[in-house]
Amino acid sequence: MSRAALLVLADGRFPAGGHAHSGGAEAAVGAGRVTGAASLEDFCRGRLHTAGLVSASLAAAAALGTDPVELDAAADARTPSPALRTAARRLGRQLTRAARAAWPSAELDALRRAFPKGAHQPVVLGVTARAAGLGPADAAYCAVYESVSGPATATVRLLGLDPFEATGVLARLAPEMDEVAGAAVCAAERAAGEGTDVLPADSAPLLEISAQAHAGWHMRLFAT
């Protein structure tokens, strides 16, 4: 395993489209549910243990070599909001492009052929980790970190939140990110033997509902 490759993949500037997404933070700010560092932390914690865990499990399973087509179907089943499914596929397509340029691999090429308009982003993330010589824990960590870093960065832009406070939120969540990444890897290992149905399906209904409403906003800074 290359620790440096993990840093390349996890870098917020990795050009795979994430900058245009707030992970539901814009909708939460608009509804008055996120107003500062404390409520941002609550929001991120909720996202980490639901969408974050599910994404990390899918990514870890893909990194273990589980069939991406099956995993993509499992991701679809775990994403009720059509707007979020569309966004996840768009981000998956964008990640596929960046990953193929960064770590050319037959598996990524095959994934692109199977999903020309994009597979779910966490699935692509796992296949990318494999191509980069990384393991399931690395893939899980990337997914877990993305699940909270996206909303934190977006909230800095949306609220003018002090960036030091936003980074403090992420740092305080680090021990929980470790736990969720660990749980995701365990689930992925189980799924390798028992099938993708055993992957976590924790959901945050308000994230799904507000994503759907947000997609209809006329004025917004972020795509989701």
Binding site: D67, P68, P104, A106, E107, D109, A110, L111, A114
Partner: peptide, 11 residues
Amino acid sequence: MHLDHASPHDG
């Protein structure tokens, strides 16, 4: 689909 047995890079 078995990606392990995928063909070499496409264009």
